[in-house]
Design a protein around this nucleic acid. Sequence first.
DNA 1: ACGCCGACCGTCCGA
DNA 2: CGGTCGGCGT
Length: 799
Amino acid sequence: MIDFNDAPDGFSVGSPQPGVAGRIPAFINSLNDRQREAALTTEGPLIVLAGAGSGKTKMLTARIAYLIEGRGVAPWQVLGVTFTNKAAGEMRERVEKVLRESGSGHLGAPEIGTFHSVCIRILRREIHRTPFTKPFVIYDDADQLTLIKGAMNKLAIDEKSVSPKGVQSAINRAKCDALQPEDVEPSAHNFFERQFKRIYEQYQKDMFANNAIDFGEIICLTYRLLRDHPDLRSSYQRRFRYIHVDEYQDTNRAQCLLLSMLAAPMNGGHGNICVVGDEDQSIYKWRGADIRNILDFEREYPGARIVKLEQNYRSSKTIIRAAGEVIKNNTARRDKTLWTDNPEGVKIIRAQVPDERAEAEFTVSEIKRVAQGENRPYGDFSIFYRTNAQSRQFEDVLRREKIPYQIVGGLRFYDRKEIKDILSYFKAILNPSDSVSIKRIINTPARGIGKTTLDKLDDWLALPENHARTFWDALAKASSDTSLVSAGTGKKLAAFIQLMERFIIEQPKLTLSELYHLILDETAYVVDLRKEGTEEALARIENLEEFDTLLQEFDEDNFFSHAEAPAGAETKPPQKADLLALFIEQTSLASDVDKLDDRSATVKLMTLHSSKGLEFPVVFLAGMEDGLFPSIKNWEETPVEDIEEERRLCYVGMTRAREKLYLMNAVMRRIWGDTHCNEPSRFFLEMPSELLDYKDYSNRLGQGSARSSFVGSSSRYLRDEYSQEAPSDSSVSRRTATFSKMPGTIQNDLVGRQMSHADYGPGTIIAVDGAGDDRKVTVEFRGRQQRKFMLRYVASYIV
DNA sequence: ACGCCGACCGTCCGA
DNA sequence: CGGTCGGCGT
């Protein structure tokens, strides 16, 4: 979609004429030498190794703007590919801002999007060259699995002998490598592989017959389209004359092949491709990311220039040094070292806590303390963890303390059952050949059409003499043919068909919101939920209302953008069916990070993976325990590459922090009901200890009035279990948030006094150091065991 | 056709 | 532990 008038006229007054080749615009001056070199190297292949926080988005933005403004390249000839919608949106925004400020906004916008959105645009445009007969819908993982099960059913392959989930992951893996069913060569004795090839074949047929496409196929099909149609290939090569790829280290084989169709000289391409990546931030190997892409770039594009961006503008020296020391331990990396001119900053706080509850209590009390003490908004804070399951404790405590937070991950809004139901109606209306959606809604709400009936239809469909292609055909047949199903069922089927046909007829006249209300009215969906009356049902109704708001916003946006299109423009007004397709597509491609609002004053919770590309003044990294992070299932058989990927994840997490970094480990953690006692993460050993401020709270349990507020509901028995093994240098330093009020009996002459500690029993104070509130005492207990405590904290034990 | 109960199984995540 | 799914009983 082309944006016609983005530039207010006033902006271009007095600006030099754009498009003068060779002119170097002002925004280039704000780049450092390396960034400038990358931005100005517009011709030929270029690989930019950009460390964390080295300003690669700034460089890319400047480069694209320079191409358009300085070298007179038309915006639509510039392509920018990113991994998330959020990254694409940010880049688009920044490019447009630069162009607008220098008066070139009227030239239009470059094509910037994710691999998937760019490919979908190509596929829609070239749909007559694809197997699709109608606008296709996008299948998510759940839809895909349903289709796989259907394919296995057709082939009479038992789900117990071949796991559908296993097939799904094998199909997706094959698609990452751009392998089609015919490229799969099963080993002769491997039962799974032989079955897999058959299922994959059937699956592909079914998918196309449904006019549906899965995520992997979006890339693969586009690649094959360009590979097999030389005319198309050269036309897109002429169209996208300058190609930019962000996060290149995370591309898979299929994406790499696709790019090579557009740009590689060996395929007749222009070679103007700029890839930006950092192998130290490659964290998606398990998803098919292929490290060879970045290593072999020079081979695919001979004569490629290499530029390294090593200056970090984000973090303190302390954080950069610590992260650098960690990543240094990886072998599979290019030689580069991140450095920074930023201040030294404060030490990294490395806290050891008794359990996951204490971890959350400590985190939240620190957030409160720092937010108050340093006058920071809650939006400055973020909490990262390895797995989504770890978010629970943090949510509980944040909610209790009434601190606003936002959580990334977990269930997507569009993945909620009620939303998926309505979306399935939308999909089926747009594309009745979509059997997965039809099957989902045919008995939602309940219409008395059950599994037996669906199986009968599938069986009928499988008979070769019936030339029906889609499930919808079978449905139509059965609704009138009494030999297939009972008369009663036939009536029910006929009623369903009539309902759907009504929707299909009405749809072109309705806005999305009107269509939505028609569906709800005719199906009594909400009425049924109201009848249920449970809390869960009410939450669903609320979600549906929120969904309606989204629809209305979408309707308005598209009404206005249409209304504002210049008179006489060649673009056709969008049809309602196009808008419906567009909406469905957006929901399929939306991710959770995309809607993360980084300006809101809320604490952000997310996995380490989601954190990539973001930055926060204060970062808490939770669960740094061997086994959990690094995640290790099998201690003997974990290959070193897996540990290196975990180390990169650690590096990514640490380098998100600008000023303050907390690294936490729990001595004990409950996972799936089992208690685990893990060693502190091995990554701690890789950080220079002088950069860490070690705080050991692992013995701080159940100590009556003196206990710190961050120790929550941990049970008492733990104390006995762990007090024996506590590290001997355990020290509790500085104040941590909201200690209970101490009795005001702290005296000067403390050495030699006796105390009775709740954990360690009787002891003698042998030393005092520090001053004021930060005074610490060293106490010797039975067996010459020494411990150091904050005075405020143990004052009540002094006899 | 539907509802309940028990077995199973679980990372990370993305378009 | 907790959600999902499949099978079985009504």
